[in-house]
Design a protein around this nucleic acid. Structure first.
Length: 295
DNA sequence: AAGCCTCACAACCGCATAGCA
DNA sequence: ATGCTATGCGGTTGTGAGGCT
């Protein structure tokens, strides 16, 4: 004997709910409570299956649902939880009062996922994307001497680094020839960001680790910063950069202080929308600038 | 103005699982 | 222990709005 369908498909309405249907469902649930979803449609006078009623109530009609745009803190929380829980939308929703799993899932797929991709972060692993940018040509062109590598690396880290700490680190650690480049306005790019943002690259993780070994003060430089919803880097995201794309399995307390940016300046973490053409153009400009700065 | 395209979000579908008889 | 049912969950699809050509 096969499993009975959750509801009799005959004569049941599908598709968008009308305001009359919504009102019937609200009236019924306010009077009797949700109770048995299977029998609810008949009792409430709805030609819908119980599943559809439950979904409509849970995702749209429930009085405690928070509508409207996701805040920066909410997005940060989602990213952080997703890095730990994966696509466990209901578990994520449980930690975001007023948000439904469906809403979070949709927001992830339509907004957050794309933002992470634009930033060069794999939305599945929360580590650097391996298929997005190949900086090896930039780092190892014949014109490049090895001295070019670190500034190039740092340019690509500008999304991740607190500029003040970056300046401190570069001055304290005496990166060869870097001060000369700074004198030629490269520091402005590092600190203020270019007109267009650059995403984190596939090679960032590969090149940062040796840097970190040589420069212990780099640990702790990675920071989250944003003043609006346009750009962000979650704690786990930058943790994953700093420890080789693995992250703590222990969920840190989701206090707002943890999520607060170190620097509220909107300038250096500038990840507004950019096309791949713009990104290509940006890298081309950076390469030219570096070459003219050093030669 | 019309057709096409893209995006965001609501809703659906099928599977998993908990709970109960 | 087993089978059935209701509910929960996550992936996918459908639809409408807005932008673009």
């Amino acid at each position: 004997m096969g499993r009975k369908p959750c509801c009799d498909k005959e004569g049941l309405k599908k598709g968008p709910w009308t305001s009359e249907e919504d009102q019937k469902l609200i009236d019924y649930i306010q009077t009797y409570g949700p109770g048995n979803w299977r029998s609810l449609p008949n009792k409430a006078g709805l030609k819908r299956c119980g599943k559809s009623c439950r979904l409509r109530w849970a995702n749209y009609l429930r009085p405690d649902i928070k509508r409207g745009n996701f805040s920066f803190e909410e997005e940060e929380t989602i990213i952080q939880l997703h890095s730990i829980l994966g696509n466990k939308w209901s578990a994520i929703a449980a930690r975001l009062p007023g948000r439904t799993d469906n809403e979070i899932k949709n927001h992830w797929n339509t907004h957050i996922r794309k933002k992470l991709i634009r930033m060069g972060i794999d939305p599945v692993t929360h580590g650097p994307r391996l298929d997005y940018f190949d900086l090896s040509s930039m780092l190892y062109t014949p014109q490049n001497s090895s001295l070019l590598n670190l500034p190039a690396i740092l340019l690509n880290l500008q999304n991740l680094l607190n500029p003040e700490l970056l300046r401190l680190a570069t001055s304290q650690n005496g990166i060869p020839n870097f001060s000369r480049i700074q004198n030629q306005n490269l520091s402005n790019i590092l600190v203020n960001g270019p007109d267009h943002p650059i995403p984190t690259s596939q090679t960032v993780n590969q090149v940062v680790e040796p840097c970190m070994q040589n420069m212990p003060s780099f640990n702790g430089l990675l920071c989250a910063s944003s003043t609006d919803n346009s750009g962000f880097m979650s704690n786990n995201s930058y943790q994953s950069f700093s420890n080789g794309s693995s992250f703590s399995t222990e969920l840190s307390p989701l206090s707002s202080s943890l999520l607060h940016p170190i620097d509220s300046s909107p300038t250096y973490l500038n990840s507004h929308t950019s096309t791949e053409d713009e990104i290509d153009s940006y890298f081309s400009n950076v390469e030219n600038l570096l070459q003219t700065s050093i030669l």
